[in-house]
């Protein structure tokens, strides 16, 4: 379970460049829920994700994961509870390491690392089994450098990596934004499958209203650092993109001016 309690985030506080990225957010996500987060540029989506991953420390408020307060944990320490997939496919893995070395790094996430061999036969066998589920033939390429894989393949591997070690929360940061439409669809299907199989508590940030409504069980829209609306259950099931737009205009009293949200 995730619990965000009166979170406020300001970048460059006190200076002339001070910017309030998150005004005030209270949010509780029960275990196993898949939440999609939508909002225009500067709405605070990524900041919200970074507050959960530990990359941003809020100036006010508390972050609790499964009842444990983690507000001031570094991102490295937070990794024992949180797994994440980045927007940029190059960000989530090491290009110069092999596929199996990247998987080994993810396998040790959140554990004390020692002088044991990072790779062994049983690990390789289990990695092969996990990769073969992708249907991309990557199980035959364990020894290839990560940099030789395409963006879509790297993103698929990043998703697998996020599930190799136990986690409480999966964070997906616009993880299909840098992919072509066909590959993006594949990654989204894979996401749906992995999240459903392992019943992960998931927060997915997206730029696309379509995606936000298609995936998950709950959608949150952010605007100027606040939660504008929060729909789930039957109310959400019948919702279309144009409904979402109407809701936005009704609540905000202004038309949504972010083309990316409408077009994608």
């Amino acid at each position: 379970m995730i619990h965000l309690d009166s979170i406020q985030v300001t970048f460059n506080p006190g200076g002339p460049l001070a910017k309030r990225a998150i005004e005030h957010i209270d949010l509780t996500i029960p275990t196993g829920q898949f939440v999609t987060v939508i909002g225009g540029n500067g709405a605070g989506k990524s900041t919200l994700l970074n507050v959960l991953s530990g990359d941003v420390t809020p100036d006010q408020g508390r972050v609790l994961i499964d009842g444990q307060e983690v507000t001031h944990w570094s991102s490295a320490r937070r990794a024992q509870l949180v797994a994440r997939v980045f927007q940029n496919p190059l960000m989530g893995s090491c290009a110069e390491l092999t596929l199996e070395e990247n998987l080994a790094l993810a396998h040790s996430r959140g554990r004390q690392r020692g002088l044991n061999l990072a790779l062994n036969r049983s690990l390789r066998t289990s990695f092969k089994a996990r990769l073969s589920q992708l249907g991309l033939g990557l199980e035959k390429r364990l020894g290839d450098r990560m940099g030789l894989l395409s963006g879509g393949q790297r993103q698929a591997v990043s998703l697998v990596m996020s599930t190799l070690a136990p986690q409480k929360v999966l964070l997906l940061d616009e993880h299909t934004a840098a992919l072509d439409p066909k590959t993006a669809t594949y990654i989204l299907d894979l996401t749906r499958k992995i999240v459903a199989e392992q019943q992960l508590t998931t927060l997915m940030v997206t730029h696309s209203m379509r995606q936000a409504l298609d995936l998950g069980d709950r959608t949150i829209m952010l605007h100027e650092g606040r939660i504008l609306f929060d729909v789930s259950g039957p109310e959400r099931a019948g919702l279309t993109v144009s409904d979402l737009l109407q809701q936005f205009e009704a609540k905000q009293g202004e038309a949504l001016a972010d083309d990316a949200l409408l077009l994608s």
Binding site: S53, S74, S75, A76, R77, A79, Q80, A83, R84, F86, M91, G92, S93, C94, A95, E96, L97, E101, L105, A106, S108, R109, G110, R111, R113, M161
Partner: peptide, 15 residues
């Protein structure tokens, strides 16, 4: 090795 190559990824893996 991951620390030198991609520190962001390394931290996300708990390093």
């Amino acid at each position: 090795r991951a620390t030198g190559m991609n520190p962001t990824m390394a931290q996300a893996q708990g390093i």
